[in-house]
């Protein structure tokens, strides 16, 4: 695994910056708390401290740096706090419990996967239509692009509410938002992939009097595979974002989105951050699984080793 070292380096750098940032981000809260516990801080009144910037307050009070890392409700939780919360909510509670992050992960993941499948199939079908039909080429692409300029945050509540009013609730509305976000990269990548064979390769099939169907299965579809996988990887992370966004506006009771909302509303940023990391790890795993399928498929197709 030669790629492990660069990745580890970047992750270490992010953690280093994060760790350093915890001090100034939490220094005001910490100073107030320390003052209440009769620990000397400068300046010594809350009002005066509000006048001082975070960096200079941190520089003046090195003795309370350590405390910034263990606040109950920090502005920025420290890495070990988030790590501990992740550990606790993943490994120490039953996965079926509502306090388990795995439970919430599954709720979001199921919507993500369903939405991704809908989005990917819709994307592939639209791409085939666009490549084979002039009218669709002219008509569909502008709308597909327009659809992505509408802020999903504005659209998501409407989708949920409208579908709810006709009795569709639970998994499907979230999946539709997922699909809405994930079909677009698939359309774009697949159109490019299906059009990737050059004129010479099309002429070659022409000299065999090949039918359009044969051209699709034997040339265009296999030629599009590398493009398809690239866009599926973008699509599946968009899908996860869609599912989370679908959970946010409606006060969903489960899922990463619900977890973030609860953390926000009840002033438990560690919970929010743990859910954020849970979502990021899930996205990374999803992309990794797709990459593995991509490598296997392309290698089996003889295109992986070049």
């Amino acid at each position: 695994m030669k790629s492990l070292l660069p990745i580890a380096t970047v992750v270490a750098l992010i953690f280093a910056i994060w760790t350093v940032a915890v001090v100034p981000m939490n220094i005001h809260l910490t100073a107030d708390m320390a003052a209440r516990q009769d620990i000397a801080v400068t300046p010594d009144t809350p009002a005066a401290r509000q006048e001082v910037g975070a960096l200079s307050l941190a520089m003046r009070n090195p003795t309370i740096w350590e405390m910034t890392y263990s606040l109950d409700r920090p502005n920025l939780p420290s890495p070990h706090q988030v790590g501990a919360e992740l550990y606790k909510s993943v490994f120490t509670v039953e996965p079926t419990s509502r306090r388990s992050l795995l439970y919430h992960a599954w709720v979001t993941l199921s919507a993500t996967l369903l939405g991704f499948v809908i989005g990917a199939i819709a994307g592939i079908l639209l791409a085939v239509g666009i490549v084979y039909n002039r009218t669709m080429d002219k008509a569909v692409m502008p709308w597909a692009i327009t659809s992505q300029t509408i802020p999903i945050l504005a659209l998501a509540p409407m989708v949920i509410v409208m579908l709810g009013s006709i009795g569709i609730q639970g998994l499907l509305p979230k999946s539709i938002i997922s699909a809405y976000l994930s079909f677009f990269p698939v359309v774009v990548g697949m159109v490019k992939g299906l059009r990737s064979p050059d004129q010479m390769q099309l002429d070659l099939l022409n000299t065999y009097s090949a039918s359009g169907t044969q051209g699709f299965w034997k040339l265009r579809l296999p030629a599009s595979m590398p493009y398809l996988f690239a866009s599926l990887k973008i699509g599946i992370s968009a899908s996860l974002v869609g599912a989370i966004v679908g959970e946010l506006p409606t006060g969903a009771r489960a899922g990463f989105g619900a977890r973030m909302l609860v953390g926000d509303q009840y002033g438990q940023p560690i919970l929010t951050w743990a859910a954020l990391f849970g979502a990021a790890i899930t996205a990374a795993l999803l992309v990794a699984v797709l990459s593995m399928i991509e490598r296997r498929t392309l290698r089996r197709m003889g295109m992986g080793a070049a």
Partner: peptide, 28 residues
């Protein structure tokens, strides 16, 4: 099927073996 055509570039399908490429017109 009066003629076979050879282009400037070999234009072999990268996802097919040499045998698979030669089989292409036969399949069609």
């Amino acid at each position: 099927r009066a003629y076979g055509y050879v282009f400037q570039a070999a234009g072999l399908y990268p996802w097919r073996t040499i045998g698979g490429n030669i089989r292409l017109p036969l399949e069609i």
